[in-house]
């Protein structure tokens, strides 16, 4: 499928090779193909449209220098624009040098929050932090058990309560941290839909109670068009600091990341790419940009430019 598309792009690009200047007429086919690539990669319809408009604006009137074709030029503009959109801002999480660092992990059901929490615990423990995992998902069957097992695997203790009250778990965990001298808290919350008012209220309350250093929104890289709606709603409710893109070991192109990035403007901080607890990576905008645009073809074009 990708090959077919890149052939089409090549064809569209060929039409404008050998012309000195990029014009509305000679780039329109190319832009249409790029739009198609973005949509096929799950970039939101509206986001793709705005993105293309921006690219067009940058491209029009550009003089094509002798060494590159107009196609290469416009491809480079697109690629650079995408990398810039995906990057920007700081992307490490902030660790409090004094006092406790509190990380709140939120997101939709099944997005990979619990797994990510354990992965992050492992990573921070390796950096000599005294980490505590907090089981604030009181709903999902065996959620606490799951976190306990993962905690054991990374040798990080798990705080949980018998009472089914997530707010109480959150506030009690703060006391526990003080007593036991942990310096890093990772709070795993229940998956929730952005339209579920009661559950969104709960996560807002938890945030209010723990006043986290960082709130991270975990999103499945397979997510489609609806990513903009859920990300927007979560951002309005908890004003998260960063995004975690999960399940990137699959073959989804991950266009949802662009959508989210452009509607909420928050940095992507981590990539979760496997079921094993060491499968956690920092985020590289250029890698995701080439992935979204369809692997090698575009990138090699760009490199020629």
């Amino acid at each position: 499928m990708f090959e077919e598309l890149s052939l089409k792009i090549d064809a569209a690009l060929k039409k404008i090779t050998g012309q000195g200047r990029l014009t509305e007429a000679n780039i329109s086919d190319t832009l249409r193909e790029i739009r198609r690539i973005l949509l096929d990669a799950d970039v939101n319809y509206k986001v793709a449209k705005d993105f293309i408009d921006k690219v067009k604006e940058k491209a029009l009137g550009k003089e094509v220098i002798a060494s590159i074709t107009p196609g290469q030029l416009i491809t480079k503009i697109i690629y650079d624009e995408l990398v810039e959109l995906l990057g920007g801002g700081h992307s490490e999480i902030f660790l409090n040098p004094t006092g406790a660092t509190i990380i709140l992990v939120v997101g939709l059901q099944g997005s990979g929050k619990t797994t990510f929490s354990a992965k992050l615990a492992k990573r921070l423990k390796e950096r000599k932090r005294k980490v505590l995992l907090v089981a604030a998902d009181i709903y999902r069957p065996a959620a606490i058990e799951q976190l306990k097992i993962l905690g054991q695997q990374v040798d990080v203790p798990v705080f949980s309560l018998e009472q089914k009250d997530a707010r109480l778990v959150a506030s009690e965990s703060l006391k526990y941290v003080k007593e036991k001298g942990f310096d890093t808290l990772i709070i795993d919350t229940a998956g929730r839909l952005h339209v579920d008012e009661e559950m969104m209220k709960e996560v807002a309350d938890i945030k209010e109670i723990v006043k986290p250093t960082e709130t991270l929104f975990v999103v499945d890289s397979m997510t489609g068009q609806d990513a903009v709606n859920s990300a927007k709603a979560f951002n309005e409710t908890v004003n998260f600091d960063g995004i975690v893109l999960s399940k990137l070991d699959g073959d989804a192109r991950g266009g949802a990341a662009i959508s989210i990035r452009s509607v909420v403007g928050k940095p992507i901080k981590f990539v979760s790419n496997g079921e094993k607890l060491e499968n956690l990576d920092v985020f590289y905008p250029d890698r995701l940009a080439s992935r979204i645009l369809g692997k090698g073809d575009i990138v090699s074009l760009v490199e020629k430019a």
């Binding site: 799950d42 939709l108 099944g110 397979m222 997510t223 489609g224 609806d226 990513a227 073959d251 192109r253």
Partner: peptide
């Protein structure tokens, strides 16, 4: 299939 999945669902 997760209803929030995009184009990857076909694959």
């Amino acid at each position: 299939v997760d209803g929030t999945t995009g184009q990857n669902a076909l694959i």
